[in-house]
């Protein structure tokens, strides 16, 4: 299984739809997602099938139709993507361009961090006294 499957726009919208509605069938999803965008039933069905193949959705058969529900939460998927991001920005040759408030991939050593915390704390105290 690909841990970090690439997701297209429609797949992301389908996931969002499933997260909002719990268990959904293709017909209702097509009404909500496909019709406003002028997308055919088959296209929506393909997106569901791809997400199921990527193991992001699960499904059960009811009569002739499949009912789909999510296999992964928004948070789990976000953490997966962040994990992928960290892998790609780590090392001397990052492959994703971003600006992070603190470095995503590299952590300061304990000694350095403790020394800096001490310095800042002392400066705060000095400022309080003055």
């Amino acid at each position: 299984m690909d841990n970090n499957p690439k997701l297209g726009d429609l797949e992301l919208e389908v996931l969002e739809h499933v997260w909002q509605h719990g268990e959904v069938d293709i017909k209702s999803a097509h009404q909500d997602l496909g019709e406003p965008r002028g997308i055919t039933h088959n296209t929506v069905q393909s997106a569901f099938k791809r997400l199921w193949e990527k193991k992001l959705l699960q499904r059960r058969k009811v009569g002739h139709a499949h009912l789909y529900s999510s296999k992964i939460s928004r948070q789990e998927l976000t953490e997966r993507l962040v994990g992928e991001l960290i892998e790609q920005v780590a090392g001397p040759s990052p492959s994703v361009a971003l600006e992070a408030f603190v470095n995503l991939a590299e952590r300061a050593g304990e000694d350095t961090l403790a020394e800096l915390e001490e310095l800042v704390s002392r400066r705060r105290q000095d400022r309080g006294k003055s």
């Binding site: 603190v102 470095n103 995503l104 991939a105 590299e106 952590r107 300061a108 050593g109 304990e110 000694d111 350095t112 961090l113 800096l116």
Partner: peptide, 18 residues
């Protein structure tokens, strides 16, 4: 962020922080 490395700072991120 936790999972701290022992010893001095390493790498761009850590050096940058200092």
């Amino acid at each position: 962020h936790g999972s701290r490395l022992p010893g001095g700072a390493l790498g761009v991120g850590a050096k940058g922080l200092e």
